[in-house]
C-alpha cells in the first residue's frame, strides 16, 4: 500500500484540505487503487526519452516592457470575501 494514514495526512496538509477520519479512509482507498493502476507505466521503456511538458512547438512569446494595466483596486478587491482599507484581509498571521 503506497498511501497510508500518514501519507494522506501529509498530502492533505500540503494541499490545505482538511479531511475528517471517514474521508481520509475513502481517499486512502481511492488513491491506492489509482496508484496501483498507473503503475502499469513502469512497463514502458522510457530510457533516453525527453519528457514532454507542453505540446506547443512554438517559442515562448515575450511582451514589451510597457505598463498599461489599468485595473482599479476596487476592481481587484470586488470579489474579496473580506477587505478593509483597500487591503485583502485574512486571519492574523504570527510570523
Amino acid at each position: 500500500m503506497k498511501i497510508d494514514k500518514n501519507t494522506i495526512n501529509k498530502i492533505a496538509r500540503l494541499s490545505r484540505i482538511k479531511l475528517d477520519g471517514k474521508e481520509s479512509e475513502d481517499y486512502i482507498k481511492d488513491l491506492n487503487s489509482i496508484l496501483d493502476w498507473v503503475e502499469q507505466l513502469n512497463e514502458v521503456n522510457t530510457e533516453n526519452v525527453e519528457p514532454l511538458s507542453n505540446i506547443s512547438s512554438s517559442i515562448l512569446p515575450k511582451r514589451e516592457d510597457v505598463s498599461n494595466d489599468t485595473n482599479s483596486s476596487e476592481e481587484i478587491l470586488e470579489n474579496a470575501p473580506d477587505k478593509l482599507e483597500g487591503f485583502f484581509a485574512v486571519p492574523k498571521v504570527v510570523e
Binding site: N42, V44, V49, L52
Partner: peptide
C-alpha cells in the same frame, strides 16, 4: 515518467 510516456504517445 508520465511526461516521458506522453512524449512516446505524441
Amino acid at each position: 515518467k508520465a511526461q516521458k510516456v506522453r512524449k512516446l504517445i505524441a
